[in-house]
Amino acid sequence: MSTSTTESATGRAMPPVVYVPTTDDPDPHQRHIVMHHVEDGRTALYAYSAPDRLEDFYLPGSPWVLCDIPTLQRIHDETPYDLLFVDVDPGLREDTSEVTA
């Protein structure tokens, strides 16, 4: 992941910050980033360019953390993920398979 001009698979520029879903532990310092397994077994991190997109595409009322690109890289270094989806509906209303980091 490059901090200069990072682009998504669609060719659109990566937003400078994204909202990433977390677990809902009452203590914010104990929350963890939520990752998911996709059908082919890879691990995916879903991120959203705005809180309303997280609300619309992910699960309503989900807690989140604001991440810039260096933070996404740090998350990847600590708990590698194979895919980074931005503003994508993971279909969680039907499927609840997830991994917490």
Rank of each mutant, 00 (worst) to 15 (best):
Q73P: 00
R53D: 12
Q30Y: 01
M35Y: 00
T3M: 06
D95M: 04
V99W: 03
D24I: 03
G91L: 04
E39P: 03
D77S: 11
D68V: 09
A13L: 12
V86W: 02
P70F: 07
H36E: 14
P51R: 06
P15W: 04
H37R: 14
D82S: 07
V18F: 04
P63F: 04
P70T: 12
W64F: 15
R42K: 13
L54F: 03
R31S: 09
P51L: 07
T22E: 05
T5V: 12
G11Y: 00
A44R: 10
A13E: 09
G91C: 07
S62F: 01
V99E: 11
A50N: 06
V18H: 03
L45R: 01
A101P: 02
T22I: 07
G11P: 04
S62E: 09
T43Y: 01
L66A: 09
P26Q: 05
L66Q: 14
R74A: 15
T71M: 12
D82H: 10
D82E: 11
I69A: 12
F85R: 08
G91W: 05
Y46V: 12
P15R: 03
V18D: 05
D56Q: 14
D89G: 10
Q30H: 10
G91E: 10
M35S: 06
P80D: 11
A101Q: 02
E55Q: 15
S62R: 04
D52K: 05
I75V: 15
A9W: 00
P26M: 04
D82L: 02
R93Y: 04
E94P: 00
L83K: 01
P60H: 10
V34H: 00
V86L: 03
L59T: 13
E78A: 15
A50V: 06
V18P: 06
D56K: 08
Y19P: 12
T10Y: 01
T71K: 12
S49Q: 04
M14L: 14
T71W: 06
R31A: 08
G41F: 01
P21K: 02
P26S: 11
P60V: 10
Y58I: 07
L59M: 12
V20L: 05
V17M: 11
D27N: 15
P15D: 08
Q30R: 13
M1E: 12
H76A: 11
D25N: 14
S49I: 04
F85D: 11
D27E: 13
I69R: 15
P16L: 08
L66C: 13
C67W: 02
E98F: 06
P16A: 13
P16D: 15
A101H: 04
A50T: 13
P26A: 13
A9L: 08
D24A: 15
R53N: 12
S8W: 00
Q73N: 14
D89L: 02
M14V: 09
E78L: 13
E78H: 08
V38W: 00
W64M: 12
S49W: 01
D87L: 02
H32S: 14
D56A: 15
P63M: 03
I33V: 15
A13M: 03
Y19S: 09
S49N: 03
P60F: 01
E39Y: 02
R74Q: 14
P15C: 05
T96H: 06
E55Y: 06
S62V: 06
R12W: 00
T23Y: 01
V20G: 09
A13R: 07
A101E: 05
V86S: 03
V34F: 00
P16N: 12
L59G: 02
L72A: 05
A50R: 10
T23L: 02
T22C: 08
D87W: 02
E78S: 14
